[in-house]
Design a protein around this nucleic acid. Structure first.
Lengths: 149, 149
DNA sequence: TATATTTACTACCAATATGATAGGATTAGT
DNA sequence: ACTAATCCTATCATATTGGTAGTAAATATA
């Protein structure tokens, strides 16, 4: 239950890839796809969403590719995921009380609200910069549990 | 993103209904469906899952219906949801590291793990008894924000 | 025992979301 | 002009979701 689609996962990993190579040349779609083991065509659509949302910039033509359009510390995981999967909404009535006539008296709804807040606080708290740090830590000390708490 | 299906929502509300009427006669499927505004046939399948999972008991024939098979304080929301929607797993690799060859070095995976833990802690902490209390509070003081924190 | 009431079980169906793929149009460096 | 890239639109197979239909089995009551 409460699954994230591959779209969100791929978007997160693709932008992490860009963040890792931040200072260098634009990164080819093909390279991101290869390094992250995704279909090029599928990733193309995801990157297009990243560009529209303002987190990545595309350079067409020769020596083109993608770069981040903000600093990694300024892009949160919540933003990236929302760009391809929409806002966090475990149930419709949390974002839109009118979607269910029972909203005002429904005890379950209060729990769904708490759930949303809990999820949001986790995703809001992680930036691409954090992911980069976590990645480097993992390279140096694979199996380290520092971030598992 | 991270949506709960109606199956989970309906299951939660149906069991809350049983918890609210706990001391009385078995509750008819028809009555739960009517009171909670769900399709009878759809709810039938959900209740069947509740019986299989051991949270409700069914009585067939005349004066039949459904009752809780445990005390409301012994049934958590996490359990009810898991019975119809499976375990909390935002991404496959959190429950099963082998589902992705990158698991051991993937920074994103650490975040998905945190996300799962966060969700689980919310859902594990709410029992049907809590929902009953919340329901009564809402009846007495509609609009109260006590549980929103 | 006959009957009415109620859940149990099996199969089916329509709509939507998901995870892709194909192919041409457009942009820009050389 | 040529070539290496992204951009855009359409298409498609599969799975999930939400729901329906019909029959079988169980049981209280007359």
């Amino acid at each position: 239950m409460l699954k994230l689609s591959t779209k969100g996962r791929y978007a997160a990993r693709a932008l992490l890839e860009l963040a890792l190579r931040q200072s260098a040349e634009p990164v080819l779609l093909r390279e991101i796809a290869k390094s992250q083991e995704m279909s090029e065509k599928y990733l193309e659509r995801i990157m297009s969403a990243m560009v529209s949302a303002g987190y990545a910039q595309s350079l067409t033509g020769r020596h083109g590719g993608f770069i981040l359009s903000k600093r990694p510390s300024e892009i949160t995981l919540a933003q990236v995921l929302a760009a391809v999967e929409g806002p966090v909404n475990p149930v419709p009535c949390v974002g839109n009380p009118k979607s269910c006539g029972r909203s005002s008296t429904c005890a379950a709804r209060d729990v769904w609200t708490r759930l949303k807040e809990s999820v949001t606080s986790v995703l809001d708290s992680v930036t691409l910069e954090d992911l980069v740090h976590m990645h480097h830590d993992k390279q140096n000390a694979p199996g380290g549990t520092m971030y598992y708490i």
